[in-house]
Amino acid sequence: MPPLSLIVSTLRSAGCVFAEDEAELLLQTATTTAELTAMVERRAAGLPLEHVLGWAHFCGLRVAVDPGVFVPRRRTEFLARQAIELARAAGGSERRAVVVDLCCGSGALGAAVAAAVPHLDLHAADIEAAAVRCARRNLAGLGGHVHEGDLFAPLPSDLMGRVDVLIANVPYVPSQDVELLPAEARVHEPRVALDGGCDGLEVMRRVITAAPSWLAPGGSLLVESSERQAPHAVDAFTGGGLRARLATCDELYATVVIGTR
């Protein structure tokens, strides 16, 4: 195997800020010298570290992340924590909480909730075929059902009016700002997972419009937004007939809007 110092030097020259940490992960993951060399070359060429490794850490889990699939962000762990609290409150000895993860990507959010709250009825959906394949691998051992299609369209109709926790990590980057994103996201993640339309809230509004029909009484919709967009998102929730509140985390620089039926 190449020495750690050589890998660190190669990654640092390529602009990797956390070259030492990344080098350690690559060394731990690769099983042969040839595999390690190829992984270092892909990372130095600009591929996201998670795509090179084939996995990402999320809420204490190792989540598979295939090339071309949206990489779960650390700040989104705050969204997962909010969903876990609500799922725990909704479930009990008499019933299984129903949780839906829309725009699921790798299925990281659904996996985090299912790992923390046993005996869920978990469904996830994404419009991207690569994401659906990845999510099925991540959720198979957790009893999750993954559907391919646009937002609510592929979900079983018998979920209508029964969803306790609806997680929708929708794209919320305004279209004109997508080109300003780091190349790791802009080049290697699907645009449909990033682009939220003119003001970044177009997909969110579609979810809000349909959500009341799917939520159980007292059920909640959770979305992540930027701090700047949050007041507009709250207005959209309220206009859609949901009782809205904000949850924020300074440590992760995360903002979550929660709307309850």
Score class of each variant (00 low, 15 high):
M1P: 06
M1F: 08
P3A: 13
S5K: 12
V8G: 00
V8W: 04
R12C: 04
R12N: 07
G15F: 11
G15S: 12
F18K: 13
E22T: 02
L36F: 08
G46C: 06
H51V: 04
L53F: 09
F58I: 03
R62P: 01
D66V: 00
V71R: 14
P72F: 10
T76D: 11
T76A: 11
E77I: 05
E77T: 03
R81F: 03
R81L: 10
A83V: 09
I84Y: 02
L86I: 01
A87G: 00
S93W: 12
E94Y: 02
R95S: 13
R95I: 01
R96D: 13
L102F: 07
C103L: 08
G110R: 03
G110I: 01
A111E: 11
A115S: 15
A116H: 05
A116Q: 09
V117M: 12
P118Y: 06
A125T: 04
A130M: 04
R136W: 04
R136M: 08
R137Q: 14
N138D: 09
A140F: 10
L142N: 08
G149S: 10
G149R: 15
L151R: 14
P154R: 14
L159Y: 10
R162S: 10
R162D: 11
D164Q: 04
N169Q: 06
D177Q: 13
D177V: 02
V178R: 05
V178E: 04
L180D: 14
L181A: 04
P182F: 13
E184L: 03
A185F: 07
A185G: 07
P190C: 08
R191H: 05
V192W: 00
L194R: 05
D199K: 01
D199F: 01
L201E: 10
V203W: 13
R205I: 01
V207N: 11
T209V: 13
A211S: 07
G219F: 00
L222C: 00
R228W: 09
Q229L: 02
A230E: 12
A230M: 14
A233E: 10
V234K: 09
A236D: 15
T238S: 12
G239T: 04
G240R: 10
L246E: 15
L246Q: 15
A247P: 00
C249N: 09
D250L: 14
D250Y: 05
T260C: 13
